[in-house]
């Protein structure tokens, strides 16, 4: 089976909402396919962003690369508009001093057209999100 990452701008993905927007570290950095660029939150929690996947797809696995995130909640929607989100998972992440947190979540054939990531709490005043990967069966 071949997998394609759908959380890429080149695949038509878009960040349709982000609660922090320092123009030096914009949310688009999450979907540019690179781990060295990132979206930075600029203060207070919760923080969130919503990725539009261009169309409703079947996701097998989600990966997020981030730093200093403590409580992460992932929701998805199958609607044409970013509404009616359902909980996928909520998890307490481990602190990884000095290196990226790489969290993988497996879902058996999850349908989604929008993904919503909510950072409920953190290990510091700010967090970064470097990349989100959604493995979709091609």
């Amino acid at each position: 089976m071949k997998f394609t990452d759908y959380c890429l701008r080149s695949e038509g993905a878009e960040v349709v909402l982000a609660t922090s927007s320092d123009e030096k570290f914009p949310p688009e950095n999450i979907i540019d396919g690179r781990s060295d660029t990132f979206w930075a939150t600029t203060g207070m929690f919760p923080q969130e962003f919503i990725i539009s996947l261009n169309k409703c797809v079947t996701i097998n696995k989600l990966t997020i690369q981030c730093y200093l995130v403590q409580t992460l909640r992932i929701e998805k929607s199958m609607s044409k508009e970013p509404v009616d989100f359902e909980l996928c998972i909520q998890k307490e992440l481990q602190s990884t001093e000095g290196e990226l947190q790489i969290e993988e979540f497996s879902f058996p054939e999850m349908q989604a057209s929008y993904l919503r990531f909510i950072i409920l709490s953190a290990f510091d005043a700010f967090v970064s999100v470097h990349r989100v990967i959604a493995d979709v069966i091609a």
Partner: peptide, 22 residues
């Protein structure tokens, strides 16, 4: 004191070189 620019609060802010305090 806090610094705010979450959409969970009333406005969605753009941080340029100012700081907004909550």
């Amino acid at each position: 004191m806090f610094c705010n620019d979450g959409a969970h609060f009333q406005k969605n802010y753009t941080l340029v070189s100012h700081v907004e305090l909550f």
